[in-house]
Design a protein around this nucleic acid. Structure first.
Lengths: 195, 195
DNA sequence: CATTAAACGGAGTGTTTACTCCGCTTGTCA
DNA sequence: TGACAAGCGGAGTAAACACTCCGTTTAATG
């Protein structure tokens, strides 16, 4: 009943909103560059604010990271849903291509985070589950259309997607290497003629 | 002219050699568990030595990590050479399977290291180049035998191998998920019937 | 404008971490 | 077995880090 965004919470002052956005953007970039061991001080410096400001917006470094990753996961889910409009079973492949080209390291980072013990399962859990559900819908549809081999599960598809994002990150998003790796995986996911 | 191992250097005392080996083993395990941000103190504790001992053997944490990774790379290269004895072009696939089942995270860790800015190119460079050379031999042979599609290069094969190691690590080495992901990639690497 | 609460910056705090130093222990060899 | 260099342990040091506190600034509102 207050305002469209940020329910229950008072509306942010203009400068506060601007700073918050800057902090999130900078953190996203740093996360891609340095992984979860990025320093809050550098976040503050690059965002043009003091450390105090960073910690007022996000009480903890972990919360900051989790917020960034969750936002990305939500964008990914939206992408998966959008792609579902594509007919046939090729929607899944469209998602792969889109993810690799667009959204940097979301799932890779998610993995890195949990590996690093950051966890945040509670906060990320929901966003993650939603994405997996969207992905599962695509996989099932593609399998029903006999475009994807029946022995893979969403889990494997997810892993391979993560893997491709890794490759794309390392080699550059538009690189030939990333394209070829994508093609290899897509071909591998397809139904085999002799089986 | 001194002794077969460790040329130019004096031979290690028995306890020193034992400790050195323990430190390397513990570091390898910790690297798999926690990544490159493992603490030297924990290395010392788990190896049953003092921190001083760790730093006498390896002047720097980076050197310790690089030594571990290099040793693994060398083992990998040996594996690639061993597998080359397998006839046909299927040697490459044998290597994939072996690597995934056996050697934990070598290339993944190498990637993590460079991402984390540890670099060590000078020290790792040679070992890495050797492995790539061995891998390239296998790829070329497989392509000559028309078992592997001609548009992939060693670089992509390497990336996919890294990706599979990632998957294997996350899901457990013998897991069904890892096996299926392996099959998908291997099938994707094969020559396509219609192209 | 004047008022005021929200937001800000950055010096300061406590903790963790890589690495050093040095007095003690132990393997080696005659 | 004795002498001694090689090796050891772990308290100590400095730097980096996440996070706090509070005096100052600034956007919002009448």
């Amino acid at each position: 009943m207050t305002s469209p965004k940020r329910p229950v919470q008072r509306r942010l002052r203009a400068d506060a909103a601007r700073n918050r956005a800057a902090i999130l953007a900078v953190t996203e970039a740093l996360l891609a560059e340095q992984g979860p061991s990025l320093s809050t001080e550098e976040v503050a410096r690059r965002a043009g604010v003091g450390v105090g400001t960073v910690f007022r917006h996000f009480p903890t470094k972990e919360r900051l990271l989790v917020t960034v990753v969750r936002a990305r996961l939500e964008r990914l889910t939206a992408q998966a849903d959008a792609v579902a409009a594509i007919p046939d079973g090729s929607a899944l492949f469209a998602l792969f291509a889109a993810v690799i080209e667009h959204t940097a390291s979301t799932p890779a980072v998610h993995h890195a985070l949990s590996t690093a013990g950051v966890d945040g399962e509670d906060v990320l859990g929901a966003a993650m589950a939603e994405f997996m559900a969207a992905l599962e819908r695509l996989v099932r549809r593609a399998q029903d259309a006999a475009v994807v081999r029946p022995d893979v599960t969403v889990a494997e598809v997810f892993d391979l997607l993560v893997a491709l994002v890794h490759v794309a990150e390392r080699r550059g998003r538009g690189s030939q290497g990333a394209q070829i790796a994508l093609r290899v995986v897509v071909d591998g996911l397809g139904v085999r003629p002799g089986a």
